[in-house]
Structures are given as C-alpha cells and as structure tokens.
C-alpha cells in the first residue's frame, strides 16, 4: 500500500470518528429536540461518509477494485437522512414537543 493512501485512510478515519462523536455529543447536550435534530442528520452522516470513503480507499488500494457496496450504503444514508429528520420533526411538531426559551419563531400547529 502506498504511503499516500495510508495517510489518507488515517486522516479520513479520524475525521469520521471525530464527526460521529461530535454528532453524539450534540445529541447529548443540546437543549431541545429541534436543536438535537441537527447533530445526527449532519455530523453523523458526514462521519459515516468519511469512514466509508476510507474503506473504499483501503480496499481499492489493497485489491485494486472499487467496492460498490460501500458507495451504495453511503448514497442510501445521504438520501434517507433528510427524510427521517423531516418525518421526525413533523412528528415532534404534531406532539407539541417543547422548544428552548430563546427560540425565535414558532412551529405551526396544523
């Protein structure tokens, strides 16, 4: 394996792990449901994307073939993350989940 690929894999792995962790920290410490929604939908998706990318580089530099399943999983995650965030937000709005006091604007009540 070339030196460059090795560095790239390490960098991507650590970035991915850090983003996953930051997303979880956001989930644990942000004040209300709507703000918590931001952590997982982004940070975690980016984190898993980076880890996937490192796996693609690792296996392609080892075997010389590009793994399609990793790319499929990543594309699927990137397509489904906004949908699940949206439907969860709708459910929360329907249930009238409380928002933190300094929120400006209001959710609708339909």
């Amino acid at each position: 394996m070339s030196q460059f690929a090795e560095y790239a894999i390490c960098l991507l792995l650590l970035t991915g792990g850090a983003f996953t962790l930051i997303g979880a920290i956001g989930l644990a410490r942000l004040p209300d449901f709507y703000t918590r929604l931001h952590g997982p939908t982004k940070a975690t998706t980016v984190g898993v994307g980076a880890i996937m990318l490192s796996s693609v580089i690792y296996f392609s530099s080892r075997d010389g073939s590009i793994g399609i399943s990793e790319i499929l999983v990543t594309v699927f995650l990137f397509m489904t993350a906004p949908v699940s965030a949206n439907i969860l937000a709708k459910a929360a709005m329907h249930m009238g989940v409380r928002t933190v006091e300094n929120t400006q604007g209001k959710p609708w009540d339909q």
Binding site: A18, F19, I22, G23, I25, G26, R29, L30, P31, D32, Y34, T35, H38, G39, K42, A43, V46, T99, V100, N102, T103, Q104, G105, K106, P107
Partner: peptide
Amino acid sequence: IVVASFQVAKLILSPRKPRPMF
C-alpha cells in the same frame, strides 16, 4: 455539507448557547 459541518461541530463544542429559530 463539508464546510458547514465544521461550523456545526464548532458550535456544538463551544460553551455558547445556540440561537435556534423557526
């Protein structure tokens, strides 16, 4: 997505309270 994840990451780790808005 890449650029703005860094901003959100910074915001999550900073002690300052976020100012959420609808």
